[in-house]
């Protein structure tokens, strides 16, 4: 089932009583089993779009059609693990009752979490905590996956390794996915399509399809696509 987003307008009340429009005429569709990235400059309303899709904010003008059945897996910008529960408990808490005791060892092995089940989040590095957050989203076997800059503020080798791990778990069970990022290179490595957003108020500048199979996205190929996408959407709105 696809994800269809069509937001005519979303505005916030500012502290001085005015209104600030953050999103205007933003519409895109993510096909079933496709991985899309939402790329735009900082503060353009990417995270707000995700929050609208998640239903964490409901005052807006427009429609959002989500997959009806199944659950939504989310990876927040900060891992948002419960610090008073172990890694394993954090991952299992969202699971529906019939899957509460599911065997997650394969997922743990893929994400390099084997042996850390009984750690508390406070004992983990940010990179490891992010892996736990990814495991939590995937353990659900969601029908929709939303990720909000899950690799931000990690050093590049760690981020790179996490991107590969994300692709590994996602490829094992391709799920309709939308990831917010301001890192175009990252989007080019991961996505089937990239929704390019303008500066605030956010609107869709265009959709760039990445047809090259992921295995062939070498640094050279990514650099070539980056040049192409920057030529199509000059850096006014890209923050790389």
């Amino acid at each position: 089932m696809p994800l269809e987003v069509s937001i005519r307008e979303k505005s916030f009340e500012t502290t001085d009583g005015g209104r600030l429009t953050t999103i205007r005429d933003l519409a895109f569709t993510v096909g079933e089993g496709r991985f899309a990235c939402l790329v735009g400059p900082s503060g353009c309303g990417k995270t707000t779009t995700l929050r609208l899709i998640l239903g964490l904010e409901d005052e807006f003008d427009g429609t959002i059609v989500k997959p009806e059945q199944g659950r939504t897996g989310v990876v927040f910008q900060e891992p948002r693990l419960l610090p008073w529960r172990t890694v394993d408990r954090n991952i299992r808490l969202p699971l529906p009752e019939d899957r509460a005791r599911a065997d997650l060892s394969a997922l743990y092995a893929t994400l390099g979490l084997t042996g850390m089940e009984n750690f508390f989040p406070g004992q983990l590095s940010l990179g490891l905590a992010r892996r736990v957050a990814i495991a939590r989203a995937f353990a659900l076997e969601p029908s929709l996956l939303l990720l909000d800059e899950p690799f931000v503020s990690l050093d590049e080798p760690t981020a790179e390794r996490l991107r590969r791990l994300l692709m590994e778990v996602w490829s094992a069970r391709p799920t309709t996915a939308l990831m917010v990022t301001h890192n175009l290179r990252e989007a080019l490595e991961l996505a089937d399509e990239i929704v390019m957003l303008s500066a605030r108020p956010a609107t869709v500048r265009g959709v760039y399809r990445v047809d090259l199979p992921r295995a062939e996205r070498t640094p050279q190929a990514v650099a070539a696509m980056l040049a192409e996408i920057l030529a199509l959407y000059p850096p006014e709105a890209t923050d790389t």
């Binding site: 998640l54 989310v74 900060e78 948002r80 939590r136």
Partner: peptide, 12 residues
């Protein structure tokens, strides 16, 4: 409130 949002999104 971050934890409450997480609980809501994951339908606790």
């Amino acid at each position: 409130p971050h934890y409450a949002e997480m609980a809501r999104v994951f339908r606790f």
